[in-house]
């Protein structure tokens, strides 16, 4: 990459916007996953009784849907990010490259 185009990209408004929004989304989602997972682990460590309590009076406990929800949430958040990145962010990236390579 030539130095000129590096500078052009860095000064491009769309590039600045892309970097800012993507970093914000990535960091927010990472923190969210950490809260969900470490929340689950702390429940296991400190409130096993809560997870072991019956859900609706039968043998199925609160912990079963909670554990499965953590797995499903991890998958859905991944999907949300990939969807955003492969749509909005890739379009932006393409525009940035077109604008700066003139």
């Amino acid at each position: 990459m030539a130095a000129a185009s590096l500078e052009a990209i860095e000064n491009n408004t769309k590039y600045k916007h892309l970097v800012a929004v993507r970093a914000k989304l990535g960091v927010t989602l990472s923190i969210l996953v950490c809260i969900i997972y470490f929340g689950f682990i702390l429940l296991v460590a400190f409130a096993p009784g809560f997870l072991g309590a019956s859900l609706t009076g039968g043998v199925t406990t609160v912990g079963i849907p909670v554990g499965i929800l953590v797995i499903v949430a991890a998958f859905l958040l991944t999907g949300y990010y990939v969807n955003r990145a492969n749509g909005t962010y890739d379009t932006l990236t393409k525009e940035i490259i077109e604008e700066t390579s003139k």
Partner: peptide, 21 residues
Amino acid sequence: GYDGLIYSVGWLVGWPIVTFL
């Protein structure tokens, strides 16, 4: 029993981080 699920969860949660960062 249930303890197995705790491990499964642990092995999965690295993947979103790989995706985001």
